[in-house]
């Protein structure tokens, strides 16, 4: 049996990819299960999906903690979380990026396959939806599942949802990705501070969970504590303020759903810890003082 964990963002189709992979394995006569992270995450938030494949019936129903493969649909995620968490020592990570494996820096040195799925998707499907192209890369990188089965699964699964033509285009994207995947070794050296979690005992937990504000080892919890959750990592495009043009009219300040804009000296200042990059500020600024730019994370 081998296990695959997909990292994507809500709305990017990670779950569909995980399910299509299971279908491909099934078409090859294998037994496969796929499931999403059981949560309530929203569009844009980092989400996970899982696939388990074996030659015989899979009876285990737990979540996957030590995958053999990790698939990253959105490159920005490797900057904000340790995607290698729990990956087996001889496991492999497959990343959608323009970089070569040797140029990718992760928390440890690890077998790594890279594919520019975004470009392939744009060229083939016409949209930056990478969840089918990545399946081709999985086929190539793992060598465990044939590209023919992947194509068939995509046509069946995506074709049913999006129409025959779209299904075929997605299958072509997977084939192209299969041909262009590069396998190598990623570099070590990226540091992640493990986020501590507040896990009180039954005696420490306030009765019924009713909570005021509490300072814990894991940071602030309770009333007003959601600011501990930095949503800036969701962002793909970042707003940049042109201070020359900004008149301090406060329209963006009013409209920011995150409250991530403060007025400082009558100019809009964006708090990138929380900005999710929705672009409302750019769209609503009457003076064209805000521009959304592709996020570059170092």
């Amino acid at each position: 049996m081998y296990e695959i964990r997909f990292h994507g963002r809500g709305g990017q189709g990670g779950r569909m990819a995980a399910e299509a992979l299971a279908l491909a394995a099934f078409l090859e006569g294998k037994y496969a299960v796929s499931f999403p992270f059981f949560g309530a995450e929203r569009r844009g938030a980092p989400v996970r999906a899982f696939t388990r494949i074996d030659d015989k019936k899979i009876r285990i129903k737990t979540q996957i903690y030590e995958p053999d493969y990790v698939v990253v649909l959105d490159e920005t995620l490797i900057e904000t979380e340790d995607v290698l968490e729990g990956l087996k020592p001889d496991g492999m990570v497959i990343i959608n990026t323009q970089k070569k494996p040797e140029e990718v820096k992760l928390s440890r040195s690890v077998r790594c396959a890279t594919i520019d799925a975004t470009t392939i998707a744009l060229e083939t499907i016409g949209r930056a939806i990478t969840n089918t192209a990545i399946l081709g890369a999985i086929s190539r990188a793992t060598g465990k599942i044939g590209i023919d089965a992947i194509e068939k699964a995509i046509i069946e699964k995506f074709g049913a949802r999006l129409g025959k033509e779209a299904g075929e285009k997605n299958a072509i994207a997977a084939r192209k990705a299969y041909e262009k995947t590069i396998v190598g070794i990623a570099k070590a050296g990226k540091k992640f501070e493990g986020k501590k979690q507040w896990l009180p005992t039954v005696d420490e937990l306030p009765l019924g969970g009713s909570i005021g504000t509490l300072q814990t080892e894991a940071g602030l919890v309770g009333i007003g504590s959601f600011s501990e959750n930095k949503t800036g990592g969701w962002r793909v495009f970042m707003p940049v303020v042109d201070e020359q043009r900004c008149t301090g009219c406060k329209i963006c300040w009013f409209y920011c759903p995150e409250g991530a804009i403060k007025m400082v000296d009558n100019k809009a200042k964006i708090n990138y810890d929380y900005c999710k990059g929705c672009g409302i500020c750019e769209n609503e600024c009457p003076f064209k003082a805000i521009e959304m730019k592709r996020e570059v994370r170092i």
Partner: peptide, 13 residues
């Protein structure tokens, strides 16, 4: 507070 997990562009917050 910010840090809430509404979809980007949600009007509710």
């Amino acid at each position: 507070t910010p840090g809430h997990t509404a979809c980007p562009g949600c009007a509710a917050p």
